[in-house]
Amino acid sequence: MKLGTIVFPGSNCEQDVAYACEYLGIEHRYLWHNDRDLGGVDAVVLPGGFSYGDYLRCGAVARFSPIMDAVSAFAADGGRVLGICNGFQVLTEAHLLPGALIRNTGLKFICRELPLRVQASCAWLNEPAGRVLRMPVAHNEGNFVCDDETLAALQATDRIILRYCADDGGDLACAPNGARDCIAGICNEGRNVFGLMPHPERVIDPVCGGIDGQTIFRAVAGLTGTDAAAAAAAA
């Protein structure tokens, strides 16, 4: 099992993904935006950051990077693709996931740890529905929007994977960033492509405040055992 993380100009969370893999013992390599193949990795991560400065719509330039053709083909073949934050934005721009991410309703960048409720499983997350995970968000454009038909389809096919919620898992009247239906993460119809605004790679090592992100990397790497056990073993 080898994970590959794409480095676009302006990516800035690729090292954090590499560290998550190092911590969990998952083999990892970087993939350069100008390359045209995925170097034989088993799963691909599009990391957070500000690809090409995001001076246009977030992700609008990165989706035209040479490597994105390979990512699209890989995804069409059922390959597992994860987009975190800016990576999620790139996936929607590349039409690998529906909807779009626009500016937060408060027009402010939000960096805060938030509770997230698991709604359904996909190739990147295998947790019982209703479990609450705590992960940080750090974005200016995390407000998920889509038309009514798309939302209905996402709901009908259980493709909403994570929702922003209250500390106890209850519903919120409105997501902190204004996201429609409090959507924090969705997957595609094949359930192999997953995009989310929160940063699971920042809650891996308990020394940095949490371990709830481990489940995502464990799921894709097929790791057994529990997050807490891994944390204890690493400590």
Binding site: Q15, E22, H28, R29, Y30, D35, C208
Partner: peptide
């Protein structure tokens, strides 16, 4: 802040991340 540096992989383009010293 933890003292730890990221691996060199990102800087040399594609390639193994080469671990990271934490």
């Amino acid at each position: 802040l933890r003292i730890g540096l990221t691996g060199r992989g990102a800087r040399s383009g594609s390639g193994d991340s080469g671990g990271r010293t934490v």
